[in-house]
Amino acid sequence: MLLSVRDFAVHYRSAAGTVRAVDGVDLDVPEGSITGLVGESGCGKSTLGRALMGVLPDVARIAGGSVVFEGRDIIPLSERDRRAIRWRRMAFIPQTAMNALDPVQRLGAQMLEVLRERGGLGRAPALARAEDLFRQVGLDPARLSDYPHQFSGGMRQRASIALALALNPALVIADEPVTALDVIVQRQVLDVMRDLQSRLGLAMILVTHDMAVVAYACDRVAVMYAGRIVEAGTAAEVLERPRHPYTMGLTHAFPDVHGGTSALVPIEGAPPILIDLHPGCRFAPRCPFAQARCRSETPGLVDGVACFRAGEAETLRDAAARPETWAAP
């Protein structure tokens, strides 16, 4: 396993109290696969991605657990040792490419800086590598002399992918890399990522709110809700035979461009505020299948699903397909 996360927790300080943004997460990322980390805003998916990269904001702290990457736990490492991993072994693609790119520096200069200073390449090999990286993401190497503002949104995202890949990382963490893009550009960028992943044998964590993006691009998926992973497995298993009621609800909650016009079914309510959490499953207040035990005990992730009623998944799936199941009480 390339990356194994166990009982991982990240807390934020806030005026209202401690926010348990990531709370007891287990996640495995195998070599050479794209894992979708999917969930709604505030579920902790971006915090988890940033914590794995070691780029959390000052108000956040790692509150427990381990992250074993390429055979060693990287959480106890010093900032200096983390920096040695960052970019070389594990790279990051932010949602907005402008956050990865320096607006006042030509793209070529930025690539060369990374390749020479961090990768230790000489000038000529670094330039050749930069040109090759641009070609790999579908950009014209002649445009290395452009500034980021001369690029469209899609081109900037390609450039930030090229920059992330500069030092041949084993794992790339991409935080909503296509969310800000138009649908055609989104597809083209996803195709670049899939192509690179398969040619270079990279592992990738694709953080997204969009199940359709997961279905299109990912081999595996982990569904996050209120700071915890509620379901994980191959994309086919999770999307076609969901075992957690939240995943079941999500699959009926948004329109399919080739689907019918039958009514969509919202999941009533909202996720909990992650301060002063009550015991029990965090989805229980919105779950049509919740029982007494769900409100008093927190289910762990067992065999890829964190639900006490996972054994009845088939029956629950049938019920979840009926709109009246999700009607507000």
């Binding site: 083209q188 359709a212 279905a215 399919d256 461009v257």
Partner: peptide
Amino acid sequence: AVPVPRIEQDRAPL
């Protein structure tokens, strides 16, 4: 270009 929430889908170049 619109992704659909199903594993079986057209992944041919646009």
